[in-house]
Amino acid sequence: MDRQALSAIAHHDHPIASPIFPENLDRLLRRAALPEEARILDLGCGEAEWSLRALELYPSAVADGVDISAEALESAGRAAGTRGLAHRLGLHLTPADRFAGGEPYDLVLCVGATHAFGGLAKTMEAVAGFVRPGGLALVGEAFWEHPPSAGLVQSIGDYQDLPATVETVEAHGWLTVYAHTSTLAEWDDYEWSWTGTLARWGAGRPGPDGDQAVAVAKEHRDLWLTGYRGLLGFVTLLVRRSG
């Protein structure tokens, strides 16, 4: 199985796909205070839970979700239909860095998907091309709470600390107007769900796919518990574009 399929399975019980509780996600979206008929873009949307919750909070808004996972977009489409939002959500199976958005957006989301643009700085440059002057972006990125070992950097990623992360996001015309830093409880809920859902799926399917799923779940869990638990943070920044 490819990584996209495994990720879709792992996120089935945690469609937010980030270490954040639903109430904190909603609080971030409410702080955006979007205008009537707002346009929302979700880059690397996964199952589009951020967009769906935004559409529920802003009944006149419309959204576009962009992702490379057909499995995740199929799940997003089903959820949109169940929640009566399908007519307000467009889903696009394409790499985020190749998406052409058309009219500017009032809010651009890129949460946990900065790798799609080659890192945080390049993500902010790309997002600037989608958002209207004075518009907003919600950008979620991991950061190191404490200096990591070289091995962890190699396994997890070369992230910055929190002050440097904010500085990178704010460069070139952005201003932070609110943020949420994920708690350890949010991280634990996310990781136990990710690893547990994948392991349970694999254990119920004898054969190569099931064995692979269990192995990936255990490998991920061990890296989390013995490596980055309490060391890797996650911040979601609400930033405003100058102009």
Rank of each mutant, 00 (worst) to 15 (best):
I16W: 03
R39W: 05
V139Q: 09
A32T: 03
H11P: 05
E219G: 12
E141Y: 12
W50V: 07
A10M: 13
G102N: 11
V66H: 02
Y190C: 10
C45A: 14
L175G: 10
A100T: 11
Y178Q: 09
P133K: 09
T94A: 05
Q212H: 11
L89T: 01
V111N: 11
P163H: 14
I9D: 01
V216E: 13
V111Q: 15
P59R: 10
L237P: 03
Q160W: 09
P104T: 04
A63E: 06
I156F: 15
G84K: 11
D158Y: 12
K218N: 01
V169Y: 09
H14V: 05
F99M: 09
G102V: 12
T165I: 05
E74A: 14
R241T: 07
L85I: 04
G135H: 07
L184N: 01
P208L: 10
V131N: 08
V66R: 02
G233Y: 04
R229C: 07
L237F: 02
G134I: 11
I20P: 03
V131P: 12
T123Q: 06
Y178F: 15
E141M: 11
T168C: 04
A203E: 12
E74P: 02
Y105I: 02
V169P: 04
T168Y: 05
G173I: 03
H87V: 00
H180S: 07
A199D: 06
Q212G: 05
A48S: 12
L109V: 01
F130Y: 12
A38V: 00
G101A: 10
G81A: 15
D67P: 08
D26N: 10
F99H: 03
G84T: 11
Q154S: 15
G230I: 07
P163N: 10
Y105G: 02
R229V: 13
P19I: 13
A126S: 09
V108I: 15
S155Y: 13
W224N: 00
G44Y: 15
G102L: 12
L225Q: 10
A179Y: 15
V235T: 08
R30C: 06
T176G: 12
A38L: 05
D158I: 14
E74M: 13
F143C: 14
T82M: 04
V239S: 14
H12C: 03
H180A: 02
T82D: 02
G140A: 14
L162Y: 13
Q160C: 15
G65P: 06
I40W: 04
T226D: 11
A96R: 06
P147C: 14
R27T: 14
A142Y: 12
A33P: 05
A171G: 09
G134N: 10
I40P: 04
V169S: 06
E167Y: 15
G101S: 13
G44R: 14
E167L: 12
H115D: 07
H220Q: 15
L43Y: 10
W194I: 04
W201K: 11
V235F: 07
H146Y: 12
F143P: 04
A171F: 07
S242D: 01
G46H: 10
S193P: 00
A5D: 08
V127A: 15
G101T: 06
H146R: 14
K122I: 03
H172W: 10
L93Q: 00
S7T: 04
G90Q: 00
P208I: 11
G118D: 08
G118Q: 08
H146V: 13
Q212M: 13
G65C: 05
H92C: 00
L198T: 02
R53E: 08
H172K: 11
G134T: 10
